[in-house]
Amino acid sequence: MDIWFLVSNTIVLACIYGTLAIGISITWSSLGLLNLSYGFIFAFAGYGAWLFAQHVSPFGPAVLVAGILSGALGGVIICALGFIPIHDKPNFTIRGLIATLAINLIGTQFLLWWFGPRSKSLPEIFGDWSVSLSGAVFSADKVGNVVTSILMLTVVLRWMQSSRRGLEIRAMMMNPHAASIVGIGVRRTSFYVMGITGGLAGLAAVLLSQTYYISPFGGLMPMIKGVSIALCGGLGSVRGAVIAAVLLGLNEALTGVSIGGRYVLITQFTVIIAILLVRPRGIAGLLDRAREA
């Protein structure tokens, strides 16, 4: 029973953090931008969903969609402020990283100033039923979280596989210079990418707010988990991110059972450092073909 609870919890968290990690991975590999303002996008999307639930309707799926849309809006804002002005300037990678950190600082402080430090809670999105399966009880939000995040990821990945825009994004991932030569606009594509990854972060925000609450700085921990998973799986690789999410989720569950929940982060970073010492570019990352420029 206890183990089942932990395992289900881990699967849920792995799904949500994996969503964020894939967003970070896609942004890095297609734009060359290490977006560290996910904490802000996360909180922004949460507050967007909260405002929607307060003023328009508390109907679950509508709140979810509102969260995704406001996350996409946050991503587009970051793109317009932090990517478009400097993407062709010298030293872009470091400057882009610092710019997103600065936007994160401004944005979270703005949310703190506007909404106050008290955390907000969203209505129950998936209702309050539960499924009992051979002694394990799966509550509605857990099932809903897993199903929604997997569904959303599948839709996004299918869209990237099969549509024209997805083709553009994949071309940018392979070789941004050649992509711009054959007429794929870097700026336009960057708006798509940031919109989609922002939407993924918004989804994660709404799903996580079922367990935690919405606060201005609440996005930090999910961002760090997402970044660690993306790092461990290899930046730019969706497959690696999935493997890393499962691996780190397993580690979290095992640590929680054997030593105690306090040491989760310590074992997690030990595992990440060990993996990175063996494979410096993550599980599925290739050493030589790092993205340049």
Binding site: L34, L36, V227, L265, I266, I272, I273, L276, P280
Partner: peptide
């Protein structure tokens, strides 16, 4: 120790996590 193997951003992300740890 990891700084000898990792470069640039990988190390930045790792140390960001270490700080939180």
């Amino acid at each position: 120790l990891p700084a000898t193997r990792l470069d640039g951003f990988y190390y930045a992300l790792l140390t960001l996590g270490l700080n939180e740890l």
